[in-house]
Design a protein around this nucleic acid. Structure first.
Lengths: 108, 108
DNA sequence: TTGACGGCCATCAATTTGCGAGGCACAATA
DNA sequence: TATTGTGCCTCGCAAATTGATGGCCGTCAA
């Protein structure tokens, strides 16, 4: 998969995922990898900066949770502002797809 | 329209357009602007470097044509290699859309 | 007990892309 | 003559991803 296409879609993906419930970084990476059958492997270098940015704007919030084995995980959860933002982003996404489709032509 | 989403889609757009016939830079910009109803204005700073790159890889070729009034225009035409590349790109595009759709959910 | 491996967090330099601004040139119109 | 529109292009900046790298902790097998 061409990396370039993914560029702007990361926040959209993350918010959509977190919409299903809180997740931690590693889990996000694995989930994406599994659901896409391995075609898309989200890199840490892309994930964490994106998460931190979303947190800085308060679209998501994070908290540490201790597992049974004593280790910690950092969970990220979507916030109301993030929900609203996600809604707007989805709309934008659909517009974008329509636009490209208009040039590329309908799906083969 | 969020610029970030557009990032990787420019070559796809250009090749798709040129598939309809040779065009020159200014014409491309105007065509895109009109077809999208103004939501997407391709900028020169994005267009020309992209065209030059496509030409460097021989996906498109260019030639100057003199108008009646004596002015010159540089036309860009898609090449066989570009056709093939476009086909592959379209496929990739569809995969990409499906992938995002899988996370974002079906269209509202 | 040591070492390899997987889970889990994260940052950094380099690369790539698009954007905004600007430059240059000529024709048509006012 | 001045302004607008056509038409090409480059430069520096900002933003995002990649690939590399680093660290910490458990566990399981040798």
């Amino acid at each position: 998969m061409d990396r370039e296409l993914l560029k702007g879609s990361t926040p959209l993906l993350l918010l959509s995922l977190l919409c299903e419930g809180p997740m931690y970084g590693y889990q996000i990476i694995e989930t994406v990898r599994q659901r896409t059958g391995g075609t898309y492997t989200l890199k840490e270098g892309a994930l964490y900066p994106a998460l931190h940015k979303l947190e800085a704007t308060e679209f998501i919030a994070s908290y540490w949770e201790t597992q049974e084995n004593g280790r910690e995980r950092r969970y990220y959860a979507i916030q109301p502002a993030g929900q609203a933002f996600l809604t707007a982003k989805k709309k934008e996404w659909n517009q974008f797809v329509d636009m490209v489709q208009a040039f590329v032509g309908p799906r083969a």
